[in-house]
Amino acid sequence: MTSPVVEVSHLRKTYPPSRTAVADVSFDVARGEIFGILGPNGAGKTTTVECLAGLRRADGGTVRLLGRDPQADPRSVREHVGIQLQEAALHDKITVGEALDVFGSFYAEQADPAELLDLLDLTAHRNQQFGKLSGGQKQRLSIALALVGRPQVAVLDELTTGLDPAARRATWDLVERVRDAGVTVLLVTHFMDEAERLCDRLVVIDGGRVVAQGTPSALIEGLEGHRGVRLRFTGDAARTRALEILTALARQDDAVAAVNPAGDEIEVSGTRTVLFAVVQALAAADVVPDDVRTVERTLEDVFVQVTGREYRAEENEEVTV
């Protein structure tokens, strides 16, 4: 099975009167991947997966899911795709066990409810009503419902929003277990750290367009000046001297891209050999830093580089184009 499980090509969707939610989005997902759709709120992520699931009609482009066209025949993908939507989607008075049984009954092939409850740590809450579950428990039930029909593809939309850090980490482990069970996972998220931690590959969407795609590590490696070093010195004199040396170094050595004072520290960025170059230059001038730290680059830096602005998850709430 080398053909992609999901193929999205030049997808476009405009809401009346003129709000373009998705301008041009293309990507492929291979079987068994955890694939991320990452971007700030309002970037067009949910609209993209809704078109993909056949819940919305796209204005342009093509979508293929397991070789079928969910736009032309939404029913054809229902059996094989499990979707966990952002909002709570159950009656407050239905119990966990009842919800699993009733959703399971819709599918030709059903997962064993007891196994699912166990996988999602919900066995103890089997007889509890939905309205009385905690946020994390609701979220886990929502994932269980997405998996109850033994789907080949699971779409998980913002599944850790509103969860505390411990519950988030537990949910991440769970997503990996789901993938290990053979399900291709499409993860929609506005959390950079979540995407970086979980995704095999991802697309970054901004303003309805793909602005970056690849594996998290390749995206970070691809950053200009993707390695950073922070240096601290005792006394202004030493720092000023170091700044002069490093600024000169940046002009001569391609390994050093930028030198910036940052509070009482100096931040230097550059290629893989930046640390070596910096330490060597300072040692040659006999300037000894108190502390040297390497700075980790993240997907957030990727976002800043490709969009030219800082990443704020809540921005673009009302994009009008």
Partner: peptide, 17 residues
């Protein structure tokens, strides 16, 4: 209306039901 408000109708549209 509560089914709509809670997203039950939308949730069901993603299943074969």
């Amino acid at each position: 209306a509560t089914f709509r408000e809670k997203g039950v109708l939308k949730r069901l549209s993603t299943t074969p039901m």
